[in-house]
Simulated scan of single mutants.
Amino acid sequence: MTLQLGQTAPDFHQDSTHGPIRFHEWLGSSWGLFFSHPKNFTPVCTTELGEVARLKPAFDARGVKPIGLSVDAVDSHRAWDRDIEETQGAALNFPLIADPDRKVAELYGMIHPQADPSVTVRAVFVIDPAKKIRLILTYPPATGRNFAEILRAIDSLQLTDAEKVATPVNWTPGEAVIIAPSLSEAEARERFPQGWREQRPYLRLVDLPR
């Protein structure tokens, strides 16, 4: 199954380190960060899960619920959690889905046979409160993810949902944004009375109030 931006994230019911989870019900009205791991007791995954545990307050501040997946059983997940805490200094504080039958991995297209038919790729899905997929990232099994970039992308998604703007290259929160080309000059003046810097009629940079 190939998932695309704008599609509804598939629902599922699966066991996890936090007990049985019905995905849509668990998400509720929150944003979701759903990310997969090739298998348990792998070095890159161990560092990633520790990082997300450390970043949990940052996700909470954005109304985002992180949830991981690995194609092993819950008992194995719990044993792995002890290793994560001992090596990374942070224990799992979010659910890790057990997917030994690969039901969810197949549902989300996390098995890429041409890369490795035996494990999931490092998939990332950002899902909005309407259960729509808003961002998809796919890393090969050996390349660790950059969760600072994932947070930055979530900041952009949430800002551009709230304002008629887009975020330029390498944007970080607090920097200038681009006024949506769909806004006329009159509409832009009404929405952005602070004014903007016009590099081209289609490229208008504005500083938003903090």
Rank of each mutant, 00 (worst) to 15 (best):
R200A: 12
R200E: 09
T46D: 05
P38L: 03
L49N: 00
H112W: 11
K132N: 12
P10A: 05
R78C: 14
H77A: 03
S76F: 06
T8S: 11
L27E: 04
G50C: 05
A142P: 05
T87M: 15
T47I: 09
D11S: 06
P209A: 12
P10Y: 04
D11I: 07
G144N: 08
T47Y: 05
R189K: 14
W26G: 01
L208A: 09
R102D: 06
V165Q: 02
W26L: 01
D128F: 10
A53V: 04
K56Y: 15
P140C: 07
A153R: 07
A53R: 01
Q88R: 15
E25L: 01
E198P: 04
V206F: 07
S36W: 06
E187N: 03
R200Y: 09
K131H: 12
P173K: 01
G50I: 05
A188R: 10
Q199K: 14
H24E: 01
I67H: 01
R210D: 02
D83F: 14
E48W: 02
G28C: 02
G6W: 00
F41S: 12
D60M: 04
K56D: 13
R122T: 12
M1R: 07
V64E: 09
D207S: 10
T138D: 04
A9I: 02
K65A: 01
T2S: 04
F12R: 01
S76R: 12
D161W: 02
P193D: 09
G63R: 02
M110L: 15
L27R: 05
L49T: 04
H37K: 01
R82C: 15
K103E: 13
G28W: 00
F125L: 07
L151Q: 04
A148D: 14
D75V: 14
S70K: 00
L157G: 09
L55H: 12
W31G: 08
W196I: 07
F192L: 08
W196L: 06
M1V: 10
A79Q: 15
D101C: 02
Q158L: 09
E175R: 10
D161G: 13
S70R: 02
P168D: 02
S70Y: 02
Y202Q: 14
V104M: 04
F23M: 06
H112G: 07
M1W: 00
F125E: 02
D155G: 07
F35C: 02
F23I: 05
F41M: 12
P168T: 03
T46W: 08
P57A: 11
F94L: 03
F23R: 06
D81T: 15
A166H: 06
D101Y: 01
P100I: 05
L96A: 06
W196S: 08
S29F: 00
R78E: 15
C45E: 00
P20M: 11
L183G: 12
Q194W: 09
K56Q: 15
V169H: 11
F125N: 07
R191S: 07
F41K: 12
V206H: 08
A176P: 13
L69M: 10
P181L: 12
R200C: 00
H18I: 02
E198G: 07
K164P: 13
S156M: 03
S182G: 15
